[in-house]
Design a protein around this nucleic acid. Sequence first.
RNA 1: GGCCUCGUGGCGCAACUGAAUAGCGCACUGGAUUUCGGCUCCAGCGGUUAUAGGUUUGAAUCCUAUCGGGGUCACCA
Length: 600
Amino acid sequence: MHFNLRYSMNIQTLLETKVKEGFIILFETTIPSVEFQATRKDFEGDITIVIFPMLRYKKGNPVQIGGSIGKYLVENIEEVVSYNVVKGFLNLVIDDRFYLQSFYTTFNQESYGLCSDSKNVVMVEYSSPNTNKPLHLGHVRNNLLGYSVAEILKASGNKVYKTQIINDRGIHICKSMLAWKKYGNSETPESKGMKGDSFVGFYYVKFNDIYKKEINNLISDGLSEEEAKKQAPILIEAQKMLLKWEAGDPETVALWKMMNEWVYDGFKITYQNLGVNFDTLYYESDTYLLGKDVIEDGLTREVFFKKDDGSVWCDLTDEGLDEKLVLRSDGTAVYMTQDIGTAIQRVKDHSDINGMVYTVGNEQDYHFKVLFLILKKLGFSWAAQLYHLSYGMVDLPSGKMKSREGTVVDADELMQEMTDTAKNISQELGKLDGYSDDEKIDLYRMIGLGALKYFILKVDPKKRILFDPKSSVDFQGNTGPFIQYTYARIQSILRKASFKYDEPVDIAGVSLHTKEKELIKQIELYPDIIQQAAKNFSPALIANYTYDLVKEFNSFYQNVSILGETDETKKTIRVQLASKVAEIIKSAFSLLGIDVPNRM
RNA sequence: GGCCUCGUGGCGCAACUGAAUAGCGCACUGGAUUUCGGCUCCAGCGGUUAUAGGUUUGAAUCCUAUCGGGGUCACCA
């Protein structure tokens, strides 16, 4: 128990100060920093100090220098038991009791790994769908990423507002509206027994079918393809409808409201199934006129300039980019104008915000680069804290998803398929005696969605994903269900552990099994992983960490007996380790938006 | 074509942002349970990190060129 004072300081900080101190004493040289690594499995040791960078300050043989430092550390730090040097790497063996003791400093800590500060306030935007069709696989990735990053930011010490901007107006909605008006026969989602968003999406497809036919007719009448696309009567009609909407025509607005409500009813169900949510909503119909006054203001401050035809531009050539249009010659807004206005509006609505995250696919990289630059030029203090959470596309084996060509993977159907697969597997292998049918249904959903979410989130957001719905998603190896299974198995052990294990044991004289020590090391990484994941906006780091933890646990589980251990102290420690691992799995998975089962 | 981005065993992913013999899963081969849930564990097979140069004590990682994939270059959103 005599290490107590030092546990507040972690071993790495302690080592760093001692290495620096040793360097002065041994070589009369100061070094600015010390580089650490976890010792590779094939060498003896727990923590490794890399000697190479030190050679810049003290010329010499890295093995000799490493040896001197190692000797110094063993002599001056009780926790350092021994050392060995391989090439330029100084491997240190740390006392078992240190690991046990530091395990116990966090053992009873509530919400271990999470940081409760909220000095920084961030708004995270994700999803932001158009309201003319249901959500598809691409939206699924967006939603999972956005939700998870928001949760990670919270866990790492930020206050977070989750938001989305619903693209509820524009030509795409008018297309669905027009097709319904012409061919809908006053049908409703209810009368058809359809989900509202699918119902509206059906008419969007209908519109495109007719549009395509009209184009072909015009082409055979001798028009060029380009001309035909512009002159198709149904398109012209849709454009007229948009103008009517903009003019506030009561009938058009009423139709628009009705159809949007249908879509929202559908989205609500999809979001619920997906397990995502929002703190505040923005609608494009409210924001699409924003931003124009800012452009005027920017014009007087010479952030922008006006061309002869009256259009307004921002010159970004100094930044290596082009000139960018911010206001049309007729004075109307473009996408960029809206985005500028909306960003400003958000800060007005939530005055504590000092940063924003936009979850949008990487095809808009350029747009956000420009948007952020313009906001910076306009002089907003929060403009430095904007982040485009850019993610790669989700491709199918057949290639790109095209909504007009019907090759999209529908979000609702996908979730249903995953749930069905989970059901088939669980019925064969599950231990569900005594579960009611409702409980079973919940469980299948939990596993199916766990598989889907983990599959998508374990990949670095920036990378594109190839998704094969046929071969579906694995349930073995580095997968959500594998991790859920480990959790359920630990719960089974904890149910059987009919003794008290919530207090630290007396660690004097206790020595650790290698597997126990490795497990503790892995457990201790969790808080830092959360910080890294937040810094990199990457749920993938959480996912892969959790998998490593689980693998380490399973290896431990296979190598030592937990409840069968006869030494009471050891048995208690092992149950404690297991319960801590379960706690972290649950915590980490909640950051990914994945639930964990007590049995499966 | 200009700009951006990616290229790691058959397939799917890692590599703490420059360090040890490039890790893991699937698949394949062979093992492990009188034991706490075998959806587990252990081992084997398999890579010149697209190619060619360069910087560095050290490169999958940084620089240059080439090849290949994707994105983007609208008074669309």
